[in-house]
Design a protein around this nucleic acid. Structure first.
Length: 262
DNA sequence: AAGTCACCCAACCGCAAAAAG
DNA sequence: TCTTTTTGCGGTTGGGTGACT
């Protein structure tokens, strides 16, 4: 005996592709009248011969407004590959980090790609490393790193940026993820001894930066105040610069700058 | 023009967790 | 606390469509 017989197995309910007529009944009902709550009771009230679950899926996967459809961009592809590498088949989690795409979309996309290429794991691994390298090079280029004459310093800068990228990019165990950041910038004023690194993050996007007791952690350091953050960065040399000052903005989301002294 | 094949993707299935009673 | 219902998720299927022969 089954006490959890799927509602769609009930006699008389329609299955299969949705018609535009059905969509027209569902859309106004969800958007203007009752929201998307209590799917099981929705079909009867909306006059649909479908099970509630089917209605819910139709809404979430197809009708929900502002969703993106069609081909995935290279950037989206890239993000999906990385996230899938990190998270595995956690399609719903991946979808929350890819605005305007549904988990079903992403899952379908990945599955078809997997069928296409049996060596997908090798490709993914290569793509991951290539992306990190290109991003690092791109950022170094933006920093006009070529204007810096000392090769060793270049390497120091490169290494430091690589560390930052490694921290915020790939390590699934790291509390710092690229996903936490809107931007990371490293400014190197030409005729000034100071340079600064700033980043902007939104805590609401992720709890990865917090331990269970609410402490922020970064690359193994427990961050309770600005001094802890300075300590976390102290071992990193940015083009020979060391941290002089750390400034948090005191808001829930981080908009932070770190000044370095040569 | 007809048949076959591969691809895409909407939709379904079934399980598990969460919520409600 | 237990049972039932609802919701969310990941795996899978199958129909539509376009490319190819």
């Amino acid at each position: 005996m089954s006490t959890r017989r799927p509602c769609c197995e009930k006699v008389g309910l329609k299955k299969g592709p949705w018609t535009s007529k059905e969509d027209k009944k569902l859309i106004p009902y969800v958007t203007t009248q009752h929201g998307h709550q209590n799917w099981p009771s929705l079909p009867a009230r909306a006059g649909l011969q479908r099970c509630g679950k089917s209605c819910g899926l139709r809404w979430i996967n197809y009708l929900k407004p502002y969703m993106k459809r069609g081909n995935f961009s290279l950037e989206e592809d890239h993000t999906i590959i990385q996230l899938h590498d990190l998270l595995g088949n956690k399609w719903s989690t991946i979808a929350t980090l890819l605005p305007k795409r549904t988990d079903n979309d992403i899952k379908n996309h990945c599955n078809t790609n997997n069928k296409k290429d049996k060596n997908v794991n090798v490709i993914k691994h290569m793509a991951q490393w290539v992306s990190v390298r290109l991003e690092a090079e791109s950022r170094l280029s933006n920093l006009s790193i070529s204007s810096l004459s000392n090769k060793n310093n270049n390497n120091a800068m490169y290494n430091s940026c690589s560390i930052m990228l490694a921290i915020d990019h790939d390590d699934p165990l790291s509390p710092i993820s690229k996903l936490n950041f809107h931007s990371i910038e490293l400014h190197v004023p030409t005729n000034n001894e100071l340079c600064s690194l700033s980043y902007e993050s939104d805590h609401s996007d992720s709890n990865m930066m917090e331990t269970t007791n609410g402490e922020e952690i970064m690359d193994g350091y427990v961050l309770q105040d600005d001094d802890d953050i300075m300590e976390a960065f102290r071992d990193h040399s940015f083009n020979g610069h060391t941290i002089m000052e750390f400034n948090g903005n005191g808001k829930g989301n981080l908009d932070t700058s770190i000044s370095f002294l040569k």
